[in-house]
């Protein structure tokens, strides 16, 4: 039975994230006040037969551990 998984990939803390900054500056321009700490990452959805392989998939391909953190969420 395949397991549904979601992998959340974020820029590592402390690394300059100009994409997040651009969004953070755009929101007040639309009238949304009080927005801070915006970061933009990626989301990968997948179904796997063997959920124990997810971490290796993240380390080897889905994320670049040098610049990104990842979080694996399993379950439907």
């Amino acid at each position: 039975m395949p397991v549904k998984a979601t992998v959340l990939i974020r820029p590592k803390e402390g690394i300059l994230d100009p994409q997040g900054q651009a969004v953070e500056e755009a929101l007040p321009a639309l009238g949304f006040e009080g927005v801070s700490h915006v970061h933009v990452g990626r989301l990968v959805e997948l179904e796997v037969e063997d959920a124990s392989q997810l971490e290796a998939m993240c380390e080897k391909l889905l994320a670049n551990p040098l610049i990104e953190d990842y979080e694996i969420v399993t379950g439907s």
Partner: peptide, 16 residues
């Protein structure tokens, strides 16, 4: 860099 043959990584330009 992604192949691990060179150190570091390349990120989006600061000016996006």
């Amino acid at each position: 860099t992604e192949a691990g043959l060179l150190p570091g990584a390349l990120l989006p330009n600061v000016n996006l």
